[in-house]
Amino acid sequence: MASSFREVLKSGKFVITSEIGPPKGTNIEKMLHHIDLLKDKVDALNVTDHQSSIMRFPSIGGCLTIKEQGGEPILQMTCRDRNRLALQAELLFAYTRGIRNVLCLTGDAVLVGDNKAAKGVFDLDSTQLLKTIRQMESGKDSGGNDLDGTVEFCAGAIVTPEAKPIEPQLIKFEKKVEAGAEFFQTQAIYDLDNFGKFTEYARQFPVKILAGIILLVSARMAKYMNENVPGILVPQNLIDELASAPKGEALNRGIEIAGRMIATLEKESICHGVHVMAIGREEMVPDILKAAGLAT
């Protein structure tokens, strides 16, 4: 069966994805609400996998819910917590339950999270996970053993266009393309000129690039990300723009900025789509899309 997200990627339309952060606990109400709110407004919804190494409700659980509600899930899979047996087993399970999209990530270090004494597995890395998926599609597991019933996934990966130095990042990007990545969701970008240079280069590869857009809610958040989040660079003019917002208006200013960026990316065909992350404020995603003129 063809993947419907894959078809959207191929259609040439400006693709919109967003993401859901599962709860830390069994109270899934907010997650259900976010899924309900977003599933028809975007082409697919990622569910994060213990983001920032913080133990949470699993990605696969969120993906099944999205599926049940008629949305299109993207299963995020990091290599931090499972060895190759567990990763492959989850792919088999996901496939049988109609999940057709996987985002392959190495995963953050255990040390940045909230269970700091846990073992970081990293039996595979993101590139090897992509290869493993393609191998499973050919009917063999990573040990070369036959599968009774195979999988088929639209597989994606991430890339950090603002990484410094950039060349090692691009080498890794090309390895992921070669390993079978069909789409890339990027780390958050804010400098569209610099991002344009990256997509110019990426155009030579048969992959779709979805620009990562993280909603800025205050000048403080922007500065914090500049100092603490690898590969994110919010330019000073955007920080000033947020800082100049009247009291209580910074969030709206952030929505405006995100909307404006998305609109430019689309109008100037800088990339194939966007991946909107509103970390903890998922209910703002429709407003961002509206500000971008993309609301359906």
Binding site: T106, D108, A109, V112, D125, S126, A163, K164, P230, G231
Partner: peptide
Amino acid sequence: CHKGLLNGPCGGTDNGKCEV
């Protein structure tokens, strides 16, 4: 490499330093 990666840097690398 903190994660023992074989195929190049992870997304946590920053100006030549490690995410941890």
